[in-house]
C-alpha cells in the first residue's frame, strides 16, 4: 500500500514540477518577447546575435544540407527502383528537404552550436554576477541579453533554411546526375514541377519557430543557472536537450497544422 502511495506521490510531484517549469518558461518567453517591442533597442547586441546564429552557423548547416540531399537521392533510388519509379527521386528530394529535413536538421545543428554557446555565455554571466551588474547599471538584462537573441533566432533560422533548401536540392542533383544517370535538365524540371510555394513557406515558418525555441532554451537555462562551473555545464546540457526534443515535437505539431485538412 505504502509503495503504491509513494509511487502516486512521486508521479504527482513530477507532474507539479513539470507544470511549474512550463509556467516559468512561458512567463520568461512572454517577458522576453515583450521586450523586443519596447524601447530601448540594443542594435549592436542584435547584430552580434545575428552574426553568431546566422552567419557563423552557415558552414555546419550547409554541410548538413548537402549530405542530406545526397543521401536522400541515393537511398530513394534503391527503394524506388523496385517499383520502377526512379523519376520520382527529384520531387521526393525537394519535398523532403523543404518541408522537413531543412528546418529540422538545420534546427538541430543550430541547437547544438548556438543553444549551447548561448546557455554557457549567459550562465557564466549569471554565476559571475554580470547579470546583477547589468541591473545596477540601469539595464534590464532581459532586454539587453534575451530579447535581441530571441529576435535574431526568429529571423536567422529561416534565412539559414533557405540556404539549406538550395544546397540540399543541389546535393540530390549531384547524385542524381553523376551517379543515377539523370539528365540535368529533366532533374531540375522535375524538381520545380513538384515544388509549391507552401512547401517552402511551411518549412520557413517551422524554422522561425525552431529559432525561437533554440534561443529561448539557451537564454532560459543560462539565465537560471546556479552554482559555478558545474551549474553552467548543466544549463548547457539542458538547453541542447530541451531544444532538440522540442524541435522534434513541435515539428510534428506544425506538420499536423499545415498539411492535414
Amino acid at each position: 500500500m505504502n509503495t503504491l502511495l509513494n509511487a502516486v506521490a512521486a508521479l504527482g510531484r513530477g507532474a507539479l514540477s513539470a507544470c511549474e517549469a512550463t509556467g516559468r518558461v512561458t512567463l520568461f518567453a512572454v517577458l522576453g518577447l515583450s521586450h523586443i517591442l519596447r524601447p530601448p533597442f540594443y542594435g549592436r547586441a542584435f547584430g552580434r546575435a545575428m552574426l553568431e546564429i546566422g552567419y557563423l552557423s552557415l558552414p555546419v548547416v550547409a554541410l548538413t544540407a548537402v549530405f542530406t540531399g545526397m543521401v536522400l537521392a541515393l537511398q530513394s533510388s534503391t527503394g524506388l527502383s523496385r517499383f520502377a519509379v526512379e523519376s520520382a527521386i527529384p520531387s521526393l528530394v525537394v519535398l523532403s528537404i523543404t518541408r522537413e529535413l531543412g528546418p529540422v536538421l538545420g534546427g538541430l545543428m543550430v541547437a547544438g552550436r548556438v543553444g549551447a554557446a548561448m546557455a554557457a555565455e549567459i550562465g557564466t554571466m549569471r554565476v559571475t554576477d554580470q547579470i546583477d551588474a547589468l541591473t545596477t547599471l540601469s539595464t534590464n538584462p532581459l532586454k539587453y541579453l534575451v530579447a535581441p537573441r530571441l529576435l535574431a533566432g526568429i529571423i536567422a533560422l529561416p534565412l539559414l533554411v533557405v540556404v539549406a533548401d538550395i544546397l540540399g536540392v543541389m546535393g540530390g542533383f549531384i547524385i542524381g546526375v553523376a551517379k543515377l544517370g539523370f539528365n540535368p535538365y529533366i532533374y531540375l524540371q522535375n524538381t520545380f514541377n513538384a515544388l509549391y510555394a507552401e512547401d517552402v513557406i511551411s518549412g520557413l515558418v517551422k524554422a522561425s519557430v525552431f529559432g525561437f525555441v533554440i534561443t529561448l532554451m539557451g537564454c532560459y537555462h543560462g539565465y537560471h543557472s546556479r552554482g559555478g562551473a558545474q551549474g553552467v555545464g548543466a544549463a548547457t546540457t539542458a538547453a541542447v536537450v530541451t531544444s532538440s526534443v522540442l524541435i522534434l515535437a513541435l515539428d510534428y505539431v506544425l506538420t499536423e497544422l499545415f498539411f492535414t485538412k
Binding site: R48, E121, M125, T128, D129, Q130, D132, A133, L134, T136, S138
Partner: peptide, 17 residues
C-alpha cells in the same frame, strides 16, 4: 533611486564581451 547607487562586485563582474 537605484540608478544613484554604484556597486563594486566582489569579483569585478566586468562584462567580458
Amino acid at each position: 533611486a537605484r540608478a544613484r547607487i554604484g556597486m563594486l562586485f566582489q569579483n569585478g563582474a566586468l562584462f567580458d564581451s
